[in-house]
Design a protein around this nucleic acid. Sequence first.
DNA 1: TGATTAATTAACTGATCAGTTTAATATAAA
DNA 2: TTTATATTAAACTGATCAGTTAATTAATCA
Lengths: 112, 112
Amino acid sequence: MKDSEQLDLAFAALANPTRRAILARLAQGETTVNILAGPFDMSLPAISMHLRVLENAGLIIRGRDAQFRPCALNAAPLKAVALWTDQYRSIWEARFDVMDAIIKAMKDKADG
Amino acid sequence: MKDSEQLDLAFAALANPTRRAILARLAQGETTVNILAGPFDMSLPAISMHLRVLENAGLIIRGRDAQFRPCALNAAPLKAVALWTDQYRSIWEARFDVMDAIIKAMKDKADG
DNA sequence: TGATTAATTAACTGATCAGTTTAATATAAA
DNA sequence: TTTATATTAAACTGATCAGTTAATTAATCA
């Protein structure tokens, strides 16, 4: 798969608060589907499908332990996201008064 | 809007290669819709809608200059994305042989 | 074996996405 | 005042999303 498609999948997977919460839980350690589902007011199949999205994005890895399917975080795609985002770091670190001036100038043109 | 919803919008906006390419172009400087549309094999309304998604996510700011609607990058949401992602930095920076061992162990259990 | 537990699959629904074409709006230029 | 340019809006389509309930699979336990 192309890098770009990997980013598509990672960003899409991260665009959901339930899935981000699942990753936050997995950052503390590997666990099972039922335990992951616990905090959410949502059916188990719904969680199962979120896990599939995360797995397809490479953000989790699933194993098997008897009737359990332990999930573990795989942070590699997050590194790719961070590298992509870092392209823009110098821009968001630019002095804010400068940014504000640009934004204000555009708005003035638009409104006036 | 809640921080979490801002992240939802930012991640969703970034989950599309056309929109990421638009941001890359805007990193070089503000420009108009037609010029942004140039490289893409896609109708102008399609680009216009992508720009709306980016605007709703706060990733671009739009002004007005006669019949032109200049677009400028606003990197603030990217900073939020970077901060969110950084929570996981220590995990993806963990030694890879350790990660590999964990992954291998899970797969062995699954297969064997 | 039969019952229980863990998790997924299947089938369905309503909402949103990404694109199209056609029509409309706003400004500039002839 | 007509015409051209830049852009958006509207209406539509097919695909994907996020959830549901009911059924199924896989393993454990009594």
